[in-house]
């Protein structure tokens, strides 16, 4: 077992546990776009940042790839972390506004303006599809090509891959195209519309009767605009 400090708590975790897994286990929520339990961690989206160490030597690391180590001091919600996370979300919105997942996450973290020029990318290069294809489907049909700003995900020579079995795993796991946001078509890339939904059960009961997040009714579009906005 490994002993470490997480947000001030002394905790014990199994060997080979990552900081993200440890935080999850102890009920601390850390956002991430490129992480999936079933796939190997990749550390590309940088949203799961946590601060390790103290004083001048503290630094931010991606919790999904950082292994728990004895004596490590981890803080998941420091000012530095939140600031970085918010700006990154703003960048995500400016790059790929049509993703419902990103819009939801931005709303949840209180990102309400975008100061960068608007792009309309379809892909955030989180690599979930690449890992899904290789690790779960044994496909190896798609991968990263080029580097830097020219980096893309594609099949070899941008032609239909012989390895591809059309299983659809890549589309299933994609945070950018799986749930496309119908939201803002106008100038403003932030809609915050999803925030304004409230479960329809509140019409009949004084408290919400289920704890599904997000609410299935809302997901289906039968939820209504809330009386109180947050």
């Amino acid at each position: 077992m490994i002993n470490l400090t997480l947000n001030g708590m002394e905790i014990k975790v199994e060997k080979r546990t990552t900081l993200l897994e440890a935080a999850k286990f102890y009920g601390i929520e850390i956002p991430a776009l490129c992480y999936d339990e079933a796939l190997s961690p990749y550390g590309a989206c940088r949203l799961c940042l946590v601060e390790i160490g103290t004083g001048n030597h503290s630094r931010l690391v991606s919790s999904c790839t950082y292994p728990a180590r004895d004596g490590l001091i981890v803080r998941t919600h420091t000012e530095r972390v939140i600031k970085a996370r918010k700006l990154l979300l703003e960048l995500y919105l400016a790059t790929c506004p049509s993703s419902r997942t990103i819009q939801d996450m931005a709303s949840k973290h209180g990102v309400t303006t975008v100061r960068f020029k608007q792009k309309n990318e379809e892909c955030i290069l989180c690599g979930l599809c690449v890992r899904m294809c290789a690790e779960q489907m044994q496909g190896k049909a798609i991968g990263f090509v080029n580097r830097g700003i020219k980096r893309r995900i594609t099949a070899p020579f941008a032609k239909k891959s012989e390895e591809c079995r059309l299983c659809g795993g890549c589309m299933y796991i994609c945070p950018a195209c799986q749930a496309r946001c119908q939201g803002p078509q106008e100038e403003n890339p932030v809609c915050n519309a999803c925030l304004n939904l409230s479960p329809p059960c509140l019409d009949y009961f004084q408290e919400a009767m289920c704890y599904m997040d997000p609410c299935v009714a809302c997901e289906l579009g039968t939820g209504r605009k809330a009386k109180f906005t947050y």
Binding site: Y42, C45, L125, C126, R151
Partner: peptide, 22 residues
């Protein structure tokens, strides 16, 4: 230079450099 030479894996580096350049 860095926009071209970054590996492009992390979003903060890839997109961050590109936006700084912008």
């Amino acid at each position: 230079f860095l926009e071209d030479e970054s590996c492009g894996r992390c979003f903060s580096c890839r997109e961050g450099i590109s936006r700084m350049l912008e």
